[in-house]
Design a protein around this nucleic acid. Structure first.
Length: 271
DNA sequence: AGACGTACCTGACCGC
DNA sequence: TGCGGTCAGGTACGTC
């Protein structure tokens, strides 16, 4: 489900529910998601207070009073359910009962999501976070940086943008959309991209606008409060194979596979 | 090192 | 109605 804008939307939605609350009870309806829950997970979390909720890459991070941080990844189909009007579901694998009386359900049909518990002081060096590149919306993500790290890459630019070692948060949808906005063909060898300034600006712009729209609602992704994100209505290429390009009004949007993932682009607008 | 492919898992959809 | 195939927003890991 989620790329950076969707995770950001989820974090914004659950922040006021979790922060300052104690986890009174944690229910695990199975022993694992993508990976087994860490040893002692339930015991550690029961009674812990959530000090703050923040995002790093596509991880939701809950900083806890016990000196540990819960890393929570939504995978492809993970969803946080706050809305009590939403009926229970067979794929509600984790349930948090908070001191406020709120119940928070984690629903993930494909179970590509996972949770880990790491010492709060070592989050940035932890197994899942340690190797990650900069945040795309931070000042560390610049044209000079991107040009430097891509100078050793001969493979196509689109899958390179999705490599979290280089920059985090750019998934399959927003990689296609950002390249369209920057007018760069997705099969361009990464080290032959000309305008890194335009590419960095496009990535930041697409992600910021998606966050402003509450993310994208596609298939099973809905915001925690049950409201819908709207950015999917602003897609120029993603999922639009065969349609006429909305910008040039001439060429049809192409649909190809790169590294096993769908890529969409306009061969007239993107050179 | 980098560029692939594979694996993980369920559900929706399509053509027969 | 059922069956098999394909596809789906991620990422760790194995192999060349």
């Amino acid at each position: 489900m989620p790329e950076l804008p969707e995770v950001e939307t989820v974090v914004n939605g659950i922040k006021p529910i979790f922060e300052g609350q104690t986890i009174r009870d944690l229910i695990l309806n199975r022993p694992d998601l993508r990976f087994p829950f860490p040893h002692g997970f339930q015991d550690d979390l029961n009674g812990a207070e959530v000090r703050s909720v923040y995002r790093r890459a596509k991880y939701i991070c809950l900083d806890l009073s016990i000196g540990k941080t819960l890393l929570w990844h939504l995978g492809m189909s993970g969803r946080v359910v706050l809305d009590e009007n939403e009926p229970d579901h067979k794929h509600d694998h984790v349930v948090f009962y908070l001191s406020s009386g709120h119940r928070v359900r984690y629903r993930d049909p494909r179970r590509f999501g996972f949770m880990d518990l790491v010492p709060s002081k070592k989050v940035s060096q932890s197994k899942f976070i340690g190797h990650l590149g900069p945040e795309p919306l931070s000042n560390d993500f610049t044209a000079n940086y991107l040009e430097d790290v891509l100078s050793r890459r001969k493979g196509p630019i689109k899958p390179a943008l999705m490599d979290a070692k280089l920059v985090v948060g750019v998934g399959n949808i927003y990689a296609s959309e950002a390249l369209f906005q920057a007018r760069i063909h997705p099969e361009t060898p990464a080290n032959q991209v000309k305008d890194f300034e335009a590419l960095v600006l496009a990535i930041k712009d697409v992600l910021r606008k998606a966050i402003e729209s509450g993310g994208s609602t596609l298939r099973d992704h809905v915001r925690p409060d049950g409201e819908l994100g709207y950015f999917q209505h602003h897609f120029h290429v993603y999922g639009k194979g065969g349609e006429t390009c909305s910008i040039c009004a001439t060429s049809k949007i192409q649909h190809i596979k790169q590294a096993g993932r769908s890529t969409f682009f306009c061969d007239l607008c993107q050179k």
